Amino acid sequence: MTDPNRPIGFFDSGVGGISVLKQAVRLLPHENFIYYGDSLNAPYGSRPLAEIQQLTFDAVDYLLSRNVKAIVFACNTATSAAVHLVREKHPDLPIFGIEPALKPAVENTEGGSIVVMATETTLKEQKFAQLMDRVARDRHVVKLCCPGLVELIEEGKAHSQETLDYLSDKFKALDVPEIKAIVLGCTHYPFILSPLRQVVGPTPLIFDGADGISRHLQNVLTQRGLLSDRQEPGEIHLINTSGDEKLLELSIALLTAQDPPMSDPPLDMETLGS
């Protein structure tokens, strides 16, 4: 029988997927988690498709070497580019891919426009086109490609004047009063919520996919009998490929600086780069 106390693997191109990890930890506090952040190769969004796919397979192979029981793609770009290929290769492994939260944005708003902020790869891949056709055919959806924003967040500048200026520039060409919803189509982007609110004001609803994928993870693990049977809090192991201790420190800061605050989980970390 499969050990239900094996860890759940999380993967992102950098620190952004921590926005998904923290929601999963809240929902499943007794689980062990291994988070693999590939900051050495971030951002993925502007890389060639074949390169993104290879980096994704490398991350999956690493997590499998750590004996994970499931893998969450906490990365919209990797999901768009490679999740279908990984599922084909590992048909018996629970694999969860995140997608832009366009459906709840459509369901919770009427009229106006919906802005989807995402990387180039996410917005141009067929997976997003299919999502739009399925849930937003009758809505005005604005695709807002945000090159450089991931880098600002990876550099710890999420709340800097530089990021505020970047967002102001991105939205200046849009009719902000007509925006009913903003979809954060990259897992890095929830960390710039405060400066984004400064730019667009309090009115647009803002959506990301962390809650949906975390609940889906919980449901599937329950159905497969893979939920941890421990009573104590699980452990979180943070890994970053950059070799930069500052990125691990940023990862911990992003994971623990929450409202409401998370109870202190056991944390461990390591770098894989040099």
Results as ranks from 00 to 15, higher is better:
K89A: 14
H90R: 07
L85R: 13
H90K: 10
V86G: 01
H90E: 07
P48Q: 04
F73Q: 01
V60M: 12
P91N: 06
A50E: 13
F57L: 14
A70S: 10
V68S: 06
L63V: 00
R87Q: 13
D38S: 08
L55D: 04
V72F: 10
A59M: 12
N67D: 14
N67E: 15
E88H: 06
I95D: 03
P48T: 00
F33V: 03
Y36D: 03
G37K: 00
T77P: 07
T79F: 10
N67C: 13
L40A: 14
S46W: 01
L93M: 14
P94K: 02
A82T: 04
A70N: 04
D61C: 14
D58V: 10
V86H: 02
L49Q: 13
A59E: 11
A81R: 03
D92M: 13
N67L: 10
A74H: 04
V83E: 00
Y36Q: 03
S39H: 00
S46V: 15
Y35K: 07
F57D: 10
A59K: 09
T77G: 06
S46I: 09
H90A: 00
L55M: 11
A81M: 01
L49S: 14
P43V: 14
R87V: 03
S65W: 05
Q54N: 11
N76F: 03
V86K: 00
P94F: 12
A59V: 05
A82P: 07
P43R: 01
L93I: 09
I52S: 08
E51W: 11
E88Q: 13
S46G: 13
D58F: 14
D38R: 06
A70K: 03
A59I: 14
N76C: 10
Y36N: 03
I71V: 12
I71C: 10
P91F: 02
N41F: 15
A70V: 04
I71D: 08
D92N: 10
A70F: 04
Y62Q: 13
I52P: 11
C75L: 01
A78F: 00
K69C: 09
P43F: 04
S65A: 08
A82H: 02
G45W: 04
R66W: 07
P94V: 09
G37L: 07
L55V: 00
N41E: 14
Y35L: 14
E88K: 06
A74V: 05
Q53G: 08
R66T: 11
G45D: 03
A50M: 14
F73E: 04
R87G: 04
A74D: 04
E51S: 15
A59T: 08
Y44V: 11
A50V: 15
I52T: 06
V60Y: 06
N41I: 11
V72E: 05
P48W: 09
P94M: 06
P48I: 01
I34S: 08
F73M: 01
Y44S: 06
P94S: 09
L64C: 08
N76S: 08
L64M: 15
L85H: 08
L63Q: 02
A70W: 03
T79W: 05
L55K: 01
P43C: 13
Q54K: 11
N67F: 09
I34P: 00
E88D: 07
Q54F: 15
C75W: 01
H90T: 01
A82Q: 01
Y62C: 15
L93D: 05
Q53C: 13
L40D: 14
H84C: 09
P94C: 12
I52M: 11
A50Y: 09
P43Y: 02
L55H: 05
A78N: 00
Y44L: 12
Y62L: 15
